[in-house]
Amino acid sequence: MKHGLRKRPELFWRRLAGFLLLLLWFRQGWGGVWLSQLGSPPFANPEADWLYWLLQALGIPQFFLGSWGSWVLDIALGLGLVMQCFFPLKAWVVRLNVLSWLLYFVSYYAAFTMHNHGLIGGFALQLALSIKPFSLGLSGLRYYVLWMHASALGWKLARGTAWSPQHALDVLTHQQAEALHDAGHWVHFFLENPWVWWIGWYSALIWQGMHLLGFFTRKLDLVFFVGLFVFHIGNLLLLDTTFSDVLVVALAYVPLAWMDRGKTHT
């Protein structure tokens, strides 16, 4: 009985993660960006990234962007996630999905020619769920998500853009450049009332900075959880970014409380 109770959260979260990633995988297909839908793109930009260098030097993304290699990875990823939903306790299935997701996001971003990183969320989640003990992986994932957002403020401070109101407006005008030609578009409201945009921008920066506190307390996890959705869906709607793919990492803020509750019962 005790053994069963211990395993139950693991089973539930692996199944849930498999299901959410399967939705994300379908969303990629719906958006026309499964590797097999890309039509063997000519470029594969590794930027200055050592992981991309290693894999590309071995010809791995090139293979998976090729005409039949792309089908292999797309099918492996889809089947692997379905298997994870049905057999969540099979460790090899989760590990295989960690590898497939890694190969998918590296191949995809290499061909994208710019490393956007949103799909790393799926990889980080799978990796966390493959680590034993289960709670350790989820703790690690939580710290990683905290770091992801806190470091975003760090980069802005280091690059001097955190204090620049003009940079905040530049982000909007560059992301919505096409809409600037449309006089009736909502983007003009923010340009005519920049203080409204600045309230949103600086609130987001404060929220990113608050993640540093998360390294010392779990009391703010609900704020981070809700903020994660507000922030990334806001980015999607207002700035037309696809970084919202990272939202699956929201699970990092939920399970520990549930796990702790489970422990007190056992």
Binding site: Y52, H115, H117, W147, S151, A152, T161, T173
Partner: peptide, 30 residues
Amino acid sequence: QAYFSFKGVETFPWLHFGMFSAPYQSPPEY
């Protein structure tokens, strides 16, 4: 992470999350 952030180089995929931190060098265009 501390070292590579200090160097300002994107070196491994899971180390860099700028989220619109880079200044723009040119006017907007589409």
